[in-house]
Design a protein around this nucleic acid. Structure first.
Lengths: 232, 232
DNA sequence: ACAAGAATGCTAAATTCTTAGCATTCTGAC
DNA sequence: GTCAGAATGCTAAGAATTTAGCATTCTTGT
């Protein structure tokens, strides 16, 4: 399961002037993780900013019944840990490496110095965090007003665009269920309906998208309001 | 319905050095709205930052069936419109005044000048937006893993703390339903259960909290993970 | 080629939530 | 005080979702 759900937001690294990115890198310690390895656990209090150099990170927490609820998955170029710096909160989620993952970790004292000296860092962060906030708000709104079929179609449409190979999404139905926070049975039904509509073809560990445009149109026609962003 | 759901985050104004707040005020045009008046509509493209001087603002969008889904309500000191500045998005929500409301509106060109000159503004914004992001993520997670009773109790506990009069929350069950994105019947049932537990007493347009600590303890005992923040 | 593990497909009961009413109670304005 | 509007309480049918299985199919490592 890769780049499943970065909520379509812009990675910090692509917003940061090269000079500042370099300065952050110089101040960072690099850590490599294997697939599934824990990067940090909920409640940890080691404030700092982390930047994903390669790979991806899954953020999740245990649910009431012992299940594991994934909140988001961030990919290359994204940062995390802002809350430990700016809200002085401990880690709110367990962070788990998805695939071989390389993380740059910048401890708070070093980060603070750069943050104070380079005001463009604050500007880039405002932008990155603002976009993430609005992506999450959008996702929240979808949960509350869209039936599962449409949410599923929207997710697949988004994933297909950032997928390695065009026209198909490599991920299990369980992963989709995790991401949308519903059971595998429900996802199965939703996918079956989408297949009946001729939008997708179900495979083993992969979902083929018949035609990108048809899928987007199908989703767009069922949204209560016009979408604001065009997928870039 | 006031301060129902600012997601418990910190208002920008309380994070901003007085000098910068004053400079923003000087650059702003002040607009007053009556209860229910529209401040802006989804899709509007007039970029700028708005600060709530007094009153509150409800953000909502039409749902698939014509219903109106409220995403959040922000109160005094909070800002909105960051996305128009930093993500260059049009307004994502209809904004509607809740009660007599005074808004300071700062157009993008003026804001940009101050933003570039006062680097502490970016710092305050990073903090405000980061906290809001994490509040929303928390709320999102609750939706996915907590049964309605507990979410309702948690909401009431939060509202009671910021309520004008201690020990009671002034709001209709319909408002609660709006906020949690569920039907009035479901809220009614959840509230009835909480009343059976002896945690609250239902009234007309108000809910009395028997004992703040009991309510908090009841909620805390049912959360799958330890809460990170202590209500401040 | 085969076996083991992973993923999917399917079912059925139980639960939760919604919709759509309607009756009753409460509040505040006149 | 009275009355209209607001808010709550209640009911019942139907839709959506979950849980808990189990059978089948697919893939990969040996």
């Amino acid at each position: 399961m890769a780049d499943l759900l970065d909520f379509g937001s812009t990675p910090l690294l692509s917003l940061l002037p090269a000079a500042i990115a370099a300065r952050l890198s110089a101040a960072a310690s690099v850590v490599e993780y294997d697939d599934g390895e824990t990067i940090h656990s909920r409640g940890d209090v080691k404030p700092g900013l982390s930047i994903i150099r390669s790979g991806a990170v899954r953020f999740a927490n245990p649910g009431a019944d012992g299940s594991y609820v994934t909140t988001s998955v961030l990919g290359e170029g994204h940062c995390f840990g802002e809350a430990t710096l700016f809200a002085r909160l401990p880690r709110a989620y367990d962070a788990i490496a998805v695939g071989e993952t390389v993380i740059e970790q910048i401890a708070k004292p070093r980060f603070d110095r750069i943050f104070n000296e380079e005001s463009d860092l604050a500007r880039a962060l405002v932008i990155a965090v603002t976009r993430r906030l609005y992506s999450v708000l959008d996702f929240l709104e979808d949960i509350r007003r869209l039936p599962l079929d449409i949410r599923t179609a929207k997710l697949i449409a988004g994933m297909e665009q950032s997928a390695r190979q065009e026209g198909a999404v490599e991920c299990s139905q369980s992963d989709l269920a995790f991401t949308l926070g519903v059971s595998r049975v429900s996802i199965g039904k939703a996918l079956a309906r989408l297949q009946d509509e001729g939008l997708i073809t179900l495979g083993y560990g992969r979902i083929a998208v018949q035609d990108r445009k048809s899928l987007h149109d199908w989703v767009a026609a069922r949204l209560p309001v016009e979408p604001l962003m065009r997928g870039e």
